[in-house]
Nucleic acid binder design. Sequence first.
DNA 1: CCTTCTGGGTTTACTTTTTATACTCAGGTG
DNA 2: CACCTGAGTATAAAAAGTAAACCCAGAAGG
Lengths: 173, 173
Amino acid sequence: MDTTTDPFADRDTANCSIARTLEVVGEKWTLLVLREIWYGSSRFTDLHRMLGCPRNLLAERLRKLVEHGILATEPYQEDGARSRSRYAITPKGNDLVPAVLGLLQWGDRYRADPAGPAVLTRHRGCGGSLSVQVRCEHDHHVRATDIEATPGPGFRTRTNPVTKSDQAPGQTA
Amino acid sequence: MDTTTDPFADRDTANCSIARTLEVVGEKWTLLVLREIWYGSSRFTDLHRMLGCPRNLLAERLRKLVEHGILATEPYQEDGARSRSRYAITPKGNDLVPAVLGLLQWGDRYRADPAGPAVLTRHRGCGGSLSVQVRCEHDHHVRATDIEATPGPGFRTRTNPVTKSDQAPGQTA
DNA sequence: CCTTCTGGGTTTACTTTTTATACTCAGGTG
DNA sequence: CACCTGAGTATAAAAAGTAAACCCAGAAGG
């Protein structure tokens, strides 16, 4: 590792989209709440029964997911009952599917039940089983070892809060 | 939701590959440790400096990742120094790339710096930028709303710990 | 041989999250 | 009016995370 010329060695690690995503969905239960909603639950009590998590945490997680526009509440009414609200996934929430399916795929490969995966995912209609893939814009399959990370437009170093194109290399700590 | 015929309504939610994956990599800092290693760090001190996380947590996370075969330690030696060990990602660890890139992609879309993503990922060689995609085995692009989940071979209900075709009902716990 | 330095941790005291369980509140039903 | 249900709040105890000090092995200097 050449730390003197690698711009990453001095980058501002707080400015990271992985970290920012985890700030929203990285707490315990959050991704599992979404899982249950994808699997068909939508009401507080159902989510609580399926997850077995503390009720206050469930309430808090739902609030945060709604705040961030990943879930939306919509009113519903069972007859002979007052109107209540339930939780539905939004398109922004659905954009988390590749990430979560990536976790599912890894778990299926390395940590599934001896009998096999508990859940199979299929393309509705065509019925084909799914996989999460990394592709480049020329549609090549990209293996982990063929990924190259470079500074983007929002890149910042620790010492230089904003990196513009004419930026001189910063010094190490 | 028809809870009387939906097998998912009574499924054993603990038997889930998403949950099992999160047991390994779902704790705070774990995925960020992997991020740093993908970005090029490998030594304890470098990881600690980049992440700014508590040293004991870093040690614990590294231990767990090694235990699970996601990282491996390998000895290295700078001259005039004793041999130490550093951390390298394994193929099993690299299989987490789609999931993590999924998180990155979501963060880039919804929570990036106003200037744009801090980091660009490219296909080495071809240079094309990357995307994480869900595809079916017939290579169709699959949108979140076109995903269907069905019970797989390891499927269990709460009341039936193991679901085989001929299974008699067992007791819980 | 003794002291100091460095990388790679461990210990400890403290704060924040999570957990479990009890309680509340707004309608609707008998 | 008492009671039930879904959807939460409140609260106390346990677990996880944090910050900062401490430790240890070997190399280097004196």
